[in-house]
Design a protein around this nucleic acid. Structure first.
Lengths: 186, 186
DNA sequence: TATCTTTATAAATCGCTATATAAATACTGA
DNA sequence: TCAGTATTTATATAGCGATTTATAAAGATA
C-alpha cells in the first residue's frame, strides 16, 4: 500500500473564448508593439501577459485561445485581462468574452516507482515504446483523459476539461496500479 | 580555500598497439561472429571484450586501437587479451603487441562551483560559448592537456599520456582557480 | 477532408553540441 | 597531388532541442 498521497499540480489550462465580433489584428499590432503577428505563418496574433503568465491567441473572428494558466479561474482572469488591455489601448470590444475550458494538463507524483514493462502488459489501452518515448501512454475512458506514466512514479494527465476530472483520473489509475501490484515504494 | 580535495576518476584510456604483421580481418570475422566489420564504412574491425570492458579496433596492418579501459594497466591487459583470444581462435599472431598509451580521459569533481563567465575572462587559452557547449574549454600547456570546466565544479581532463599528468593538470588548474578567486564553496 | 502551422505545459530519454587520441580508408578542395 | 576532413571506438561533463499527450483557433496545402 502507498505510503503517500499523490501530489497533483495543475501545470497548464487551455481555454477558448470569443468576444463575438470581428477584430482588426493589424490595429492591435500597431497599438501593442510587443505582440507577435505573422499572418503568413499563422493566422492568430499572440498576446502575452506577465500576470497571469499566459499567451493568448487572437483571431480576426474575435475567437481566442488562452494557454499557460495554472487554474480554470486564472484562465478566465487572463482572458478578461486581455480584453481589458485591448479596450485600454483604444480597441473597441463590445462585450466580454465567453470562456470555455478546453484542456487541463497536470503533473502528478505518486511517490513510488512504476514497473512500466509490466504496466504495458496489464493496463488496457496502453502504448509503450521506450525507444520512441520514455513514458507509457494510457487512455482512460472515464474521465476521458490521457495519462503518461513514467518509471519514476511521476505522471502527466491531459485532456481533462474540469479540475475534478484530473483527480478522478489520478485516483482511478493509482487504484489500478495498486491493485495490479505495479508500484514499488521505497 | 577549498574544503575538499579534487576527486579524480580515470574514465577512458586509449592505446595504440601493433603486432607487426598483416591481419586477415575477414578470417577474424568468420572465427568471431560477434565482431563488427564493415570495410565500406570503416577500415577497422571492432573486437569487444567484456573484461576489461573495451573495444579494440584491428586493422589489416596489424595495428590496433584499444579504447574504454579505466587505467594504463587495464589497457595493456585488454590488448594482451585480444591477442590471446585471436590465437585461441586459430588466428596466427607471431609476436605480442607493442602498446603505447595515447590518451587518458578523466572526470574530476572540485567540490565547489566555478564562475565560468569570470573564468572565461581571466583564464588564458580559454574558449567559452555556452550557447554552443556548456563547458569552458581550457588548453593547458604543461602538461599538454585540455580541460573542460563546468559551472558545477566538475571537470573533464583529456589529452594526457600518463596518469600523473592528469593529477598535475588538475592541481595546476585548481590552484589557478583558487588564486583568481573563481571558485565558490558552499 | 485531412494534416500542417502556433501557443502552453509537465514528464524522461535520445541525440546533438565539444574534448583528445590512434588506426586506415574515402572524399573534397586548391 | 597533396593537405584537410570525414568515417569508428570510448569516456566523462552539461546544456539544447526534439520526442509524446491534449486542446482550441483559422489559414494553407494536399
Amino acid at each position: 500500500m502507498p505510503k503517500t498521497r499523490p501530489v497533483v499540480s495543475v501545470e497548464n489550462v487551455v481555454a477558448s473564448a470569443s468576444v463575438e465580433q470581428k477584430m482588426d489584428l493589424n490595429e492591435i499590432t500597431r497599438t501593442f508593439p510587443n505582440v507577435e503577428y505573422h499572418p503568413d505563418q499563422f493566422p492568430g496574433l499572440v498576446f502575452r501577459l506577465t500576470t497571469p503568465k499566459t499567451a493568448t491567441l487572437i483571431f480576426t473572428s474575435g475567437k481566442m485561445v488562452c494557454t499557460g494558466s495554472k487554474s480554470e479561474k486564472m484562465a478566465r482572469l487572463a482572458v478578461k485581462t486581455v480584453v481589458d488591455r485591448l479596450r485600454a489601448g483604444g480597441i473597441k470590444v463590445e462585450r466580454d468574452a465567453i470562456v470555455e475550458i478546453q484542456n487541463i494538463v497536470a503533473s502528478i507524483n505518486l511517490g513510488g516507482r512504476i514497473h512500466l514493462e509490466q504496466a504495458a502488459r496489464t493496463l488496457p489501452r496502453s502504448m509503450y515504446e521506450p525507444e520512441q518515448f520514455p513514458g507509457l501512454i494510457h487512455r482512460m475512458l472515464d474521465p476521458k483523459t490521457v495519462i503518461l506514466l513514467f518509471s519514476s512514479g511521476k505522471l502527466v494527465c491531459t485532456g481533462a476539461k474540469k479540475e475534478p476530472d484530473v483527480f478522478r483520473s489520478v485516483n482511478n489509475l493509482h487504484a489500478m496500479l495498486e491493485e495490479k501490484d505495479l508500484m514499488l515504494y521505497s
